[in-house]
Write a protein that binds this DNA or RNA. Structure first.
Lengths: 194, 194
DNA sequence: CCTGCTGTGATACGGCCGTATCCAATACGC
DNA sequence: GCGTATTGGATACGGCCGTATCACAGCAGG
């Protein structure tokens, strides 16, 4: 056992255990003991690196946000279609469980969601760690040629809120990913009709 | 038959305590003891009328759904504007916290939401107790004259999902009720333009 | 009148929780 | 090479949880 371990790395490994537990069985299954067991370390270690449970939950969420933003940036940079429509579509499909990683993110967010409104520290982390995507989409829509009378802010608000909810509906089996993508593309067609 | 007391009535009173606790402090604050204290009865009584905690949570949710459907029916019957647009608007504004009763409903739903995906019995109650409103809206849109190329199913899906999410955003203070109503009316204008 | 079922109280039990404490092993600065 | 800060294990503590048990009041039907 090395003397000098990489705290940051350790914390990320333990946070990943939080993600797995929260995604599979909800936040109420995330206890210090369960996290330790899932991460393959002792209870004491989890205490050692995070001090308190609230801290653990907040940091695990922050790490998840970081990873999400990196993923979004990477996907934006990598895609061939750099049109406004293409960028908007990429931003919105980040909110859907289209691969295991995005599905994990969504499940963890769902697990955190309720607690977010009864625990102030979690609420802060939940709200402040992410840039409001509505503003981004609104700006992008302003930059494009839309049909007469189209209102970027109202369009962005419903798109973001709707796709966010439809992503959760996919998790819950109320819709398939294909159905949601069809709905999304229908609305993009409507907005960006040539 | 019951000896003295009205079981149904008792259960509803206790369920109301569940609502209050869940709305204020989340589902994790709903313990048998807290519910008993909030309802002003003994722990034993809660056990007596509901047997188990899962039962308590499921029935409390069912009562809430019942009340919501009655409220929707009443509002639909009472409103002067019986046009398709008017009915669609009423159905959708039922999803927003526009008065204390709808706000309570929304807060309770938010509290239940996460647990819904880790507890099978709650999941069943959550999904099966409510008629899928998307189908209703889709039918209504089919019945109306929409702009060329408008697709009722896709329009209904985004409207319902979006307004559902925006209602929660109002609870969280990310939007005001006025902003959300403006977004809703913008989209209704778009669909029902004369 | 008594037997028995319904309704209610007080309290006990075992379990998991978050946190705290005590202690052992390591490896670097000196 | 030795002390000491860092890293980690084992275990204890007090609290709340869901559920179970024991006791008992009052009305019902024989």
């Amino acid at each position: 056992m090395p003397h000098r371990t990489d705290h940051e790395q350790r914390r990320r490994e333990i946070a990943a255990a939080v993600w797995r537990l929260a995604a599979d069985r909800g936040l109420e299954a995330v206890s210090m003991r369960e996290v330790a067991a899932d991460a393959g370390v002792s209870l004491r270690l989890v205490q050692y690196y995070f001090e308190t449970k609230t801290n653990l939950l907040v940091l695990a969420l922050r790490y998840l946000h970081e990873r999400g933003e990196q993923r979004t940036q990477a996907r934006l940079a990598a895609q061939p279609d750099q049109s406004v429509r293409g960028v908007v579509r990429t931003l919105l499909t980040e909110l859907l469980p289209l691969d295991p990683e995005r599905e994990l993110s969504l499940r963890v967010h769902r697990a955190y969601f309720s607690r977010t409104h009864s625990d102030p520290r979690l609420a802060y982390a939940f709200v402040h760690d992410e840039t409001p995507i509505e503003d981004l989409i609104t700006d992008l829509l302003h930059r494009a040629t839309l049909p007469a009378g189209a209102h970027p802010r109202h369009e962005a608000n419903l798109l973001v809120a709707g796709i966010t909810r439809l992503g959760l509906d996919v998790l819950g089996g109320r819709f398939t990913a294909g159905e949601v993508l069809a709905t999304l593309d229908y609305h993009l067609d409507r907005l960006f009709q040539a």
